[in-house]
Amino acid sequence: MKRLLAAFAAVAALSAHANDTLTVAATAVPHAEILEFVKPQLAKEGVDLNVKVFTDYIQPNVQVAEKRLDANFFQHQPYLDEFNKGKGTNLVAVTGVHLEPLGAYSSKWKSLADIPGGANVVIPNDATNGGRALLLLQKVGLIKLKDANDILSTPKDIVENSKDLKIRELEAATLPRVLTQVDLALINTNYALEAKLDPSKDALAIEGNDSPYVNILVARPDNKDSPAMQKLAAALHSPEVKAFIQDKYKGAILPAF
Protein backbone atom coordinates (compact mmCIF):
# COMPACT_ATOMS: atom_id res chain seq x y z
CA MET A 1 0.00 0.00 0.00
CA LYS A 2 2.84 2.35 0.91
CA ARG A 3 4.48 1.64 -2.42
CA LEU A 4 1.20 2.40 -4.23
CA LEU A 5 0.78 5.69 -2.41
CA ALA A 6 4.37 6.60 -3.17
CA ALA A 7 3.78 5.86 -6.85
CA PHE A 8 0.68 8.06 -6.88
CA ALA A 9 2.63 10.83 -5.14
CA ALA A 10 5.40 10.59 -7.75
CA VAL A 11 2.87 10.82 -10.60
CA ALA A 12 1.19 13.79 -8.94
CA ALA A 13 4.55 15.52 -8.54
CA LEU A 14 5.39 14.98 -12.20
CA SER A 15 1.96 16.27 -13.24
CA ALA A 16 2.40 19.36 -11.12
CA HIS A 17 5.61 20.16 -12.97
CA ALA A 18 4.37 19.21 -16.44
CA ASN A 19 4.45 22.04 -18.96
CA ASP A 20 1.25 23.67 -20.16
CA THR A 21 0.58 23.24 -23.87
CA LEU A 22 -0.74 25.92 -26.23
CA THR A 23 -1.73 25.03 -29.79
CA VAL A 24 -1.81 28.13 -31.95
CA ALA A 25 -2.88 28.47 -35.60
CA ALA A 26 -0.86 30.81 -37.80
CA THR A 27 -0.19 31.65 -41.41
CA ALA A 28 3.33 30.64 -42.42
CA VAL A 29 4.95 34.06 -42.84
CA PRO A 30 5.57 35.92 -40.63
CA HIS A 31 3.22 34.64 -37.92
CA ALA A 32 4.48 31.06 -37.63
CA GLU A 33 8.07 32.28 -37.90
CA ILE A 34 7.55 34.68 -34.99
CA LEU A 35 5.88 31.97 -32.91
CA GLU A 36 8.69 29.52 -33.63
CA PHE A 37 11.15 32.19 -32.51
CA VAL A 38 9.51 32.49 -29.06
CA LYS A 39 9.00 28.73 -28.61
CA PRO A 40 12.34 28.06 -26.79
CA GLN A 41 11.77 30.91 -24.33
CA LEU A 42 8.24 29.72 -23.56
CA ALA A 43 9.50 26.20 -22.95
CA LYS A 44 11.80 27.60 -20.26
CA GLU A 45 8.74 29.23 -18.70
CA GLY A 46 6.75 25.98 -18.64
CA VAL A 47 4.73 26.39 -21.85
CA ASP A 48 5.03 24.00 -24.79
CA LEU A 49 3.98 25.92 -27.91
CA ASN A 50 2.55 23.89 -30.79
CA VAL A 51 2.29 25.92 -34.01
CA LYS A 52 -0.13 24.75 -36.72
CA VAL A 53 0.26 26.45 -40.11
CA PHE A 54 -2.87 27.34 -42.10
CA THR A 55 -3.16 28.83 -45.58
CA ASP A 56 -6.60 30.40 -45.20
CA TYR A 57 -8.27 33.03 -43.04
CA ILE A 58 -11.37 31.00 -42.05
CA GLN A 59 -10.39 27.75 -40.35
CA PRO A 60 -8.04 29.31 -37.77
CA ASN A 61 -10.99 31.21 -36.28
CA VAL A 62 -13.46 28.34 -36.66
CA GLN A 63 -11.17 25.90 -34.87
CA VAL A 64 -10.40 28.27 -32.00
CA ALA A 65 -14.13 28.95 -31.54
CA GLU A 66 -14.79 25.18 -31.52
CA LYS A 67 -11.99 24.68 -28.94
CA ARG A 68 -9.97 22.50 -31.28
CA LEU A 69 -7.18 25.08 -31.00
CA ASP A 70 -6.24 27.43 -28.18
CA ALA A 71 -5.49 30.58 -30.16
CA ASN A 72 -4.54 31.97 -33.53
CA PHE A 73 -2.22 34.60 -34.90
CA PHE A 74 -2.91 35.83 -38.43
CA GLN A 75 -5.49 38.64 -38.47
CA HIS A 76 -6.21 42.23 -37.51
CA GLN A 77 -9.05 43.60 -35.37
CA PRO A 78 -11.32 44.80 -38.21
CA TYR A 79 -11.21 41.31 -39.76
CA LEU A 80 -11.92 39.68 -36.38
CA ASP A 81 -14.85 42.02 -35.75
CA GLU A 82 -16.35 41.20 -39.13
CA PHE A 83 -15.79 37.45 -38.63
CA ASN A 84 -17.45 37.47 -35.20
CA LYS A 85 -20.39 39.41 -36.59
CA GLY A 86 -20.84 37.15 -39.60
CA LYS A 87 -20.25 33.79 -37.88
CA GLY A 88 -21.79 34.49 -34.48
CA THR A 89 -18.51 33.79 -32.69
CA ASN A 90 -17.06 35.60 -29.69
CA LEU A 91 -13.32 35.50 -30.26
CA VAL A 92 -11.24 38.18 -28.57
CA ALA A 93 -7.89 39.88 -29.02
CA VAL A 94 -5.21 39.05 -26.48
CA THR A 95 -2.57 41.50 -27.70
CA GLY A 96 -1.35 43.31 -30.82
CA VAL A 97 2.02 42.26 -32.22
CA HIS A 98 2.91 43.70 -35.62
CA LEU A 99 1.69 45.54 -38.69
CA GLU A 100 1.80 44.08 -42.19
CA PRO A 101 1.30 46.93 -44.65
CA LEU A 102 -0.90 45.88 -47.57
CA GLY A 103 0.69 46.61 -50.93
CA ALA A 104 -0.13 46.93 -54.63
CA TYR A 105 2.04 44.75 -56.89
CA SER A 106 2.48 44.30 -60.61
CA SER A 107 4.64 42.01 -62.73
CA LYS A 108 3.80 44.02 -65.86
CA TRP A 109 4.20 47.67 -64.87
CA LYS A 110 6.95 49.58 -63.07
CA SER A 111 4.79 52.34 -61.60
CA LEU A 112 1.16 53.18 -60.95
CA ALA A 113 1.37 55.84 -63.64
CA ASP A 114 1.96 53.06 -66.17
CA ILE A 115 -1.27 51.21 -65.28
CA PRO A 116 -3.37 51.38 -68.49
CA GLY A 117 -7.04 52.10 -68.92
CA GLY A 118 -9.23 49.05 -68.43
CA ALA A 119 -6.52 47.34 -66.37
CA ASN A 120 -7.37 44.13 -64.51
CA VAL A 121 -7.01 44.60 -60.75
CA VAL A 122 -7.53 41.94 -58.07
CA ILE A 123 -8.18 42.54 -54.37
CA PRO A 124 -8.90 40.24 -51.38
CA ASN A 125 -12.49 38.98 -51.23
CA ASP A 126 -12.95 39.23 -47.45
CA ALA A 127 -14.82 42.32 -46.35
CA THR A 128 -12.17 44.12 -44.33
CA ASN A 129 -9.13 43.41 -46.51
CA GLY A 130 -11.14 44.15 -49.64
CA GLY A 131 -12.17 47.51 -48.20
CA ARG A 132 -8.62 48.10 -47.09
CA ALA A 133 -7.38 47.47 -50.64
CA LEU A 134 -9.90 49.91 -52.07
CA LEU A 135 -8.83 52.55 -49.55
CA LEU A 136 -5.25 52.13 -50.75
CA LEU A 137 -6.33 52.47 -54.39
CA GLN A 138 -8.17 55.63 -53.39
CA LYS A 139 -5.14 56.95 -51.49
CA VAL A 140 -2.98 56.70 -54.63
CA GLY A 141 -5.63 58.38 -56.78
CA LEU A 142 -6.82 55.46 -58.91
CA ILE A 143 -10.41 55.49 -57.63
CA LYS A 144 -12.73 57.44 -55.37
CA LEU A 145 -15.14 55.84 -52.90
CA LYS A 146 -18.57 56.96 -51.76
CA ASP A 147 -17.26 57.06 -48.16
CA ALA A 148 -13.56 57.85 -48.15
CA ASN A 149 -13.05 56.22 -44.72
CA ASP A 150 -15.27 53.13 -44.89
CA ILE A 151 -13.08 50.06 -44.29
CA LEU A 152 -15.94 47.84 -45.48
CA SER A 153 -16.23 49.49 -48.89
CA THR A 154 -16.81 47.18 -51.85
CA PRO A 155 -16.33 47.75 -55.59
CA LYS A 156 -19.99 48.83 -55.69
CA ASP A 157 -19.02 51.85 -53.58
CA ILE A 158 -16.63 53.24 -56.20
CA VAL A 159 -17.97 56.55 -57.47
CA GLU A 160 -15.00 57.58 -59.63
CA ASN A 161 -12.86 55.22 -61.72
CA SER A 162 -11.15 57.38 -64.34
CA LYS A 163 -9.05 54.49 -65.71
CA ASP A 164 -12.04 52.16 -65.85
CA LEU A 165 -10.19 49.58 -63.75
CA LYS A 166 -11.72 46.10 -63.85
CA ILE A 167 -11.67 45.16 -60.17
CA ARG A 168 -12.25 41.54 -59.14
CA GLU A 169 -12.32 39.98 -55.68
CA LEU A 170 -10.38 36.75 -55.05
CA GLU A 171 -9.37 34.78 -51.96
CA ALA A 172 -6.39 36.55 -50.39
CA ALA A 173 -4.13 33.49 -50.50
CA THR A 174 -4.51 33.13 -54.28
CA LEU A 175 -3.50 36.68 -55.18
CA PRO A 176 0.27 36.10 -55.55
CA ARG A 177 -0.45 33.14 -57.85
CA VAL A 178 -2.43 35.28 -60.30
CA LEU A 179 -0.01 38.22 -60.23
CA THR A 180 1.36 37.43 -63.70
CA GLN A 181 -2.16 37.24 -65.13
CA VAL A 182 -3.35 40.70 -64.04
CA ASP A 183 -2.14 44.29 -64.16
CA LEU A 184 -2.27 44.96 -60.43
CA ALA A 185 -2.82 42.83 -57.32
CA LEU A 186 -3.45 44.11 -53.79
CA ILE A 187 -1.69 41.55 -51.58
CA ASN A 188 -1.43 41.12 -47.82
CA THR A 189 2.20 41.17 -46.71
CA ASN A 190 2.18 37.65 -45.24
CA TYR A 191 1.21 36.21 -48.64
CA ALA A 192 3.58 38.57 -50.46
CA LEU A 193 6.50 37.34 -48.34
CA GLU A 194 5.54 33.70 -48.91
CA ALA A 195 5.69 34.43 -52.66
CA LYS A 196 9.21 35.90 -52.26
CA LEU A 197 8.04 39.44 -52.91
CA ASP A 198 9.82 42.21 -51.02
CA PRO A 199 7.16 44.74 -49.96
CA SER A 200 9.72 47.48 -49.35
CA LYS A 201 11.08 47.13 -52.91
CA ASP A 202 8.44 45.44 -55.06
CA ALA A 203 5.22 47.20 -54.01
CA LEU A 204 4.15 50.06 -56.30
CA ALA A 205 2.13 51.41 -53.37
CA ILE A 206 2.00 50.37 -49.73
CA GLU A 207 0.21 51.40 -46.55
CA GLY A 208 2.07 53.69 -44.18
CA ASN A 209 2.85 52.93 -40.56
CA ASP A 210 -0.27 54.87 -39.57
CA SER A 211 -2.39 51.89 -40.64
CA PRO A 212 -4.84 50.61 -37.98
CA TYR A 213 -4.49 47.00 -39.10
CA VAL A 214 -2.23 45.62 -36.36
CA ASN A 215 -2.05 41.82 -36.36
CA ILE A 216 -3.27 40.30 -33.09
CA LEU A 217 -3.06 37.14 -31.03
CA VAL A 218 -6.65 35.87 -30.72
CA ALA A 219 -8.23 33.50 -28.21
CA ARG A 220 -11.57 32.89 -26.50
CA PRO A 221 -13.00 34.66 -23.43
CA ASP A 222 -12.53 31.46 -21.41
CA ASN A 223 -8.77 31.16 -22.04
CA LYS A 224 -7.46 34.61 -22.97
CA ASP A 225 -6.33 35.30 -19.39
CA SER A 226 -4.85 31.88 -18.69
CA PRO A 227 -1.27 31.94 -17.35
CA ALA A 228 0.04 30.16 -20.47
CA MET A 229 -1.68 32.61 -22.83
CA GLN A 230 -0.38 35.58 -20.89
CA LYS A 231 3.15 34.15 -21.03
CA LEU A 232 2.80 33.89 -24.82
CA ALA A 233 1.51 37.47 -25.02
CA ALA A 234 4.44 38.71 -22.94
CA ALA A 235 6.93 36.78 -25.08
CA LEU A 236 5.48 38.33 -28.24
CA HIS A 237 6.15 41.78 -26.74
CA SER A 238 9.74 41.11 -25.76
CA PRO A 239 12.69 43.21 -26.94
CA GLU A 240 14.00 40.05 -28.58
CA VAL A 241 10.89 39.71 -30.75
CA LYS A 242 11.06 43.38 -31.72
CA ALA A 243 14.67 42.92 -32.82
CA PHE A 244 13.77 39.69 -34.66
CA ILE A 245 11.00 41.44 -36.64
CA GLN A 246 13.18 44.42 -37.49
CA ASP A 247 16.20 42.34 -38.49
CA LYS A 248 14.41 39.60 -40.44
CA TYR A 249 11.79 41.60 -42.32
CA LYS A 250 13.72 44.84 -42.95
CA GLY A 251 10.72 47.16 -42.66
CA ALA A 252 8.28 44.96 -44.59
CA ILE A 253 6.74 44.18 -41.20
CA LEU A 254 6.67 46.65 -38.34
CA PRO A 255 6.53 45.91 -34.58
CA ALA A 256 3.38 47.35 -33.00
CA PHE A 257 4.73 47.58 -29.45
Rank of each mutant, 00 (worst) to 15 (best):
A18Y: 05
S106W: 03
G117N: 14
A26I: 11
K87P: 00
V47T: 07
V159P: 09
N223C: 02
L217M: 07
I123Q: 05
D202L: 14
V11R: 10
R168P: 00
N149L: 12
R3P: 00
E82C: 03
T27R: 05
V214M: 02
F37R: 12
G96P: 04
I245W: 04
N125C: 03
L80W: 07
V218F: 11
V53Q: 03
G208I: 02
A10C: 14
P199A: 09
A71W: 05
Q75T: 15
Q138D: 12
A195C: 03
G46Q: 06
P239Q: 09
V64K: 02
D198H: 10
F257I: 05
L232P: 08
P199E: 09
V94D: 10
Y249M: 03
A173D: 08
L137T: 04
P199Y: 12
A16P: 02
P239S: 10
L204Y: 11
K85I: 00
E45K: 12
V178S: 09
V29M: 13
N50I: 13
I167Y: 11
N129T: 14
Q246D: 13
L136E: 05
D150H: 10
A243L: 09
K108T: 05
I58K: 14
F73L: 04
D126H: 08
D70M: 02
S106K: 01
Q59K: 15
V29Q: 13
K85G: 02
A195N: 07
V94A: 11
T154N: 05
I206S: 12
A233G: 00
S211K: 07
L197S: 06
G141L: 07
R168E: 15
S15I: 08
D222I: 06
K163S: 06
T128D: 07
A256T: 02
S200N: 13
N61G: 10
T27N: 15
A65T: 08
K248F: 00
Y79T: 08
L217P: 03
G117K: 14
L145N: 06
I253F: 04
V11N: 00
D48R: 12
L217D: 03
K224G: 03
T189L: 04
A228E: 07
L145G: 04
A148M: 01
T189I: 08
G117T: 13
L232E: 12
L145C: 05
L179E: 05
L142G: 07
N215H: 14
D114G: 02
I123V: 15
G130K: 05
K110L: 06
S162P: 15
A10H: 01
E240H: 07
T154R: 11
K196H: 14
D183A: 09
I245L: 01
L69T: 02
R3C: 01
F74N: 10
S226N: 11
K166T: 09
R220T: 15
V11K: 01
L197P: 02
E160I: 00
A13S: 15
G46T: 05
K110V: 00
V97I: 14
G118I: 10
R132Q: 11
L170N: 09
Q41V: 11
G251T: 08
L193A: 06
E82L: 13
S107W: 04
T180R: 12
V214Y: 07
P239R: 06
R132L: 11
S200H: 01
Y79V: 09
N90G: 13
A252I: 03
A13Q: 11
E82K: 13
